[in-house]
Computed example of a mutant assay.
Amino acid sequence: MEMIWDSVKHLYAYLAVIPIIPFAIILFGYGAYVQDRKKGFRMAMDITTALLIGCVAVLFDRLFGSQFGLYGILLFMLLGGGLLGNAQYRKRGKIDGKKIFRTIWRLSFFTMSLLYILFMCFGIGKLMFTA
């Protein structure tokens, strides 16, 4: 059982290092399978978000020497969900949890993509210019 868990952790780590590769594989593979490019793009976004969250959390921890990366990301996602839920309740009088989760998850894709690029540039710069 431990060997399976280690294999899953290593696979996740390899895929999360360069998330554009799994994104492209899912986009073209799933898009070709279902013959719907929009659905393939959404599926690629959803899966890549999970990879980006882990990678950005580790990059944050390494750059800033903290252990708050994952918790900070989850905190912002929860705060965003709460704000969206409040806005939805005020507008419609009821809350659609599935829609809120999907919206936060997809917004997280764009946020994590931006942070991934930013943190990678900072990390490479820090590595190059510090001895």
Rank of each mutant, 00 (worst) to 15 (best):
M1Y: 08
E2I: 09
E2N: 15
I4V: 13
I4M: 13
V8D: 05
V8F: 15
V8G: 07
H10V: 14
H10A: 15
L11M: 15
A13I: 08
V17R: 15
I18C: 05
P19R: 10
I20E: 11
I20P: 00
I21Y: 08
A24F: 06
I26P: 01
Y30V: 13
G31P: 05
A32S: 12
A32P: 02
Y33V: 07
Q35M: 12
Q35P: 00
Q35W: 07
K38V: 14
K38G: 10
K38R: 13
R42M: 14
M45L: 14
M45K: 09
T48N: 06
T48H: 03
A50N: 02
L51R: 10
L52S: 06
L52F: 10
L52T: 03
C55W: 06
A57K: 01
L59K: 12
F60Y: 12
D61W: 01
G65D: 04
S66I: 13
Q67S: 14
G69V: 00
L70S: 07
L70F: 14
Y71M: 13
Y71I: 14
Y71A: 15
G72V: 01
I73Q: 04
I73M: 02
F76V: 09
F76E: 05
L78Q: 06
G80Q: 06
G82H: 07
L83S: 06
L84C: 11
N86P: 01
A87G: 09
R90L: 13
K91V: 05
K91N: 07
I95F: 03
I95C: 03
D96A: 12
K98W: 07
K99Y: 06
F101H: 02
I104K: 01
I104Y: 01
W105N: 07
S108Y: 01
F110V: 12
M112T: 01
M112W: 00
M112E: 02
I117Q: 02
L118E: 07
F119T: 00
F122V: 12
F122H: 02
G123W: 05
L127E: 10
L127Y: 13
L127V: 00
M128W: 13
T130L: 12
A131F: 11
